[in-house]
Design a binder for these strands. Structure first.
Lengths: 148, 148
DNA sequence: CGCGCAGTCGCCCGTTCGGGTGATTTTGGG
DNA sequence: CCCAAAATCACCCGAACGGGCGACTGCGCG
């Protein structure tokens, strides 16, 4: 930017000098100073337009267009719904494992607790979610956003 | 546009006239014509920049940035996978009802067949899908695109 | 016509689940 | 430190489920 201004000044100076030269050589005795002023006006108008445009060329309008793109939801857990339902962390964990098709026994093994414990948790979470079968729990959990 | 050019001309004319006036009144005897030329240069540079920008303002570069926006899949049934797995229409139907959390008895009532029939179908579809629990069947069916 | 497949149904058996009750231990917050 | 909530485990019972077997009925295709 500084460089451009300097360039502009230099060009302007040279032009003025040139005009002075021309003035003395040809014009001063034949044409009035209106011509001189007019010349300068035209030249610097052109220069002004040119540099003005040049320095502000970067005027870009960014149009953000929303394009529908098919993409899988990244799954953000709905913490509000979780609290609303009142599931504890353990229950939520077990819910997720149920959703993966594991049996109570398998869940127990995975979490190093007895099958009975898993049953207790699952019973409680069924209560809280107001369902009475695991598939229902899974279905409901999915559209509440509790599990992916 | 024509109007603006006329305006520009008019403004320019008035300014020149004004400068001429000033010239005779104050400057001509005290300052050299360099000042006069410089003044005109500055003024018309400014004018040139101003009008240049003003008349070409519409010339903006439009950058279209496409932003991916989430869109739920409308669920298109994956017929290929269905054939691949080899599910019959009835089995597929029952799979869908299982996915809704219905018990075999409820499915039977809904389809006006006995619970045993439902069990037969579900057994067969478990075989074909190579699962052995209904939740697993539901889960697998979902990501094969057999059910919504 | 006959074969095979899909659909229907019944029965049996063992497992899994859901629901209920009760009890102990761990843990986090007032 | 104490209490309530959460987590753990056990036992029981009935319902639901999964697997296996057998059987009968339409229906389409060669």
């Amino acid at each position: 930017m500084v460089k451009q201004v300097a360039l502009y000044g230099a060009v302007g100076g040279v032009l003025i000098a040139l005009l002075k030269f021309i003035e003395y050589k040809y014009f001063v005795h034949e044409y009035s100073s209106e011509i001189y002023g007019g010349l300068i006006a035209v030249i610097f108008t052109v220069l002004g337009i040119y540099f003005g445009l040049r320095w502000t060329r970067a005027k870009e309008v960014v149009v953000i267009r929303e394009v529908p793109v098919r993409m899988d939801a990244p799954f953000v857990m709905n913490a509000d719904k979780l609290k609303e339902v009142g599931l504890t962390a353990r229950e939520h964990e077990i819910l997720a494992l149920i959703a993966q098709g594991l049996s109570n026994r398998e869940i127990g093994e995975k979490l190093f607790v007895s099958e009975n414990t898993v049953k207790t948790h699952s019973s409680r979470l069924f209560e809280k979610m107001q369902v009475n079968r695991r598939v229902q729990a899974v279905q409901k959990a999915k559209d509440l956003g509790l599990i992916p």
